[in-house]
Amino acid sequence: MSDTHHNAHSKGYDNDQSPYTHPDIHTHHDEAAGVTTRKKIWQVFWILFILTAIEFVIAFTVPRGAFRNITYILMTLVKAFYIVGTFMHLKDEVKSLIMTILIPLTFVLWLILALLIEGGFYGKGWFLGL
């Protein structure tokens, strides 16, 4: 009995008909769609590359301080947006999944902010200004 059960399962997986993989969800695309996707990928690569290069220029030209740090953080968030949105395809997921991932992370932003403010209170550093 249990043997039959086991066989049925493994057979299901081999044929990719297991209940865990829904045929509708597999995203196949043709060569034409591939050209568009690849163009977008390389576009994002150049955006990430140029942003990182600008961060380097800032490191050696802009004096340390709140302005520089805020600029860095904003540029990092832009890079994160492109990595998560395009490379991880989160932009292509349904809105409820996007929100499920992003909303909990806003609490992390608050944690970081709160800890940095506390740290600045106990020490001599001042918030975002090093």
Binding site: V108, L111, L115, G119, G123, G125
Partner: peptide
């Protein structure tokens, strides 16, 4: 995992700011 790394970086920030 993002929570874990955020916490680590937040700890970096708080120790740095509090270090004096």
């Amino acid at each position: 995992d993002a929570f874990t790394f955020s916490t680590l970086l937040a700890v970096y920030g708080v120790i740095r700011f509090a270090s004096g």
